[in-house]
Amino acid sequence: MSRAEAVLPAEGQPIDQVPIVRVTGLEKSFGPLKVLDGVSFAVQPGQMVAVVGRSGSGKSTMLRCLNGLEDIQGGTIEICGHQVGRPGSWNKAQLRSDVGMVFQSYNLFPHLTVERNITLALTLVQKKPKADARRIALAVLEQVGLAEKAQAYPEQLSGGQQQRVAIARSLALSPQVMLFDEVTSALDPELTVEVLKVMEDLSRGGMTMILVTHEMGFARRVAHSVIFMHRGRVWESGPTAELFARPQTIEFQQFVGSVL
């Protein structure tokens, strides 16, 4: 665990930059089952961090904690200046405007058109006029290559298209950090590619992203740094190239060997 607690510098960025996400000693239990056992890491602005590990290692739970979807039993989470997790210590509405999240199962609203899926929060939460919301929706749909689907309903789209809409929906709110929870796990390989392409473009544009993923090839190629989780802990982490070139722990070596 030599590099486990290290602050992860983005390649080419100074290490003393203030991290936008900082997690220290995060603990989370479901009843007697301890899922996260002292997770610590930090993410610099503009970084893409891939969180990898076997099923049950706590990756998704950790991501959900970051967005306040789970209450936590110990440690601290600071994300975009919000102290998340402890009841009463953070303002959910403010956190929501800074952190976007995309899920494995897309979770689009099936009764609304693609455009309305995107404008809903813009008009209700950000109180934007309809015309502005519409313009933003079309812009983000353009960005994910689905401008022509604005009036379609989610069920009329392929899984990959639905997931791109979900990304656009989150993107429309101009978050500072985006969380991706196994967003390609429900997709066929050929549909996975189009979603990963959108994410790669986002990262190029400077978006800070934390993604839980099983796409090791993608993580290795695109992520600035990688966190390997094992038994509810950050077992090993560091800049991507270095980590894959010289794995420090036997667990990570085995994991890489089993998935690549």
Binding site: A93, R96, S97, F103, N107, L108, F109, A121, V125, S170
Partner: peptide, 21 residues
Amino acid sequence: RTQWEASDCLGLDRLQQYVWV
């Protein structure tokens, strides 16, 4: 339940979640 989560993550409050989603 995921519909609640998704609308929550977009910042909708409980009343808005009920009415719109």
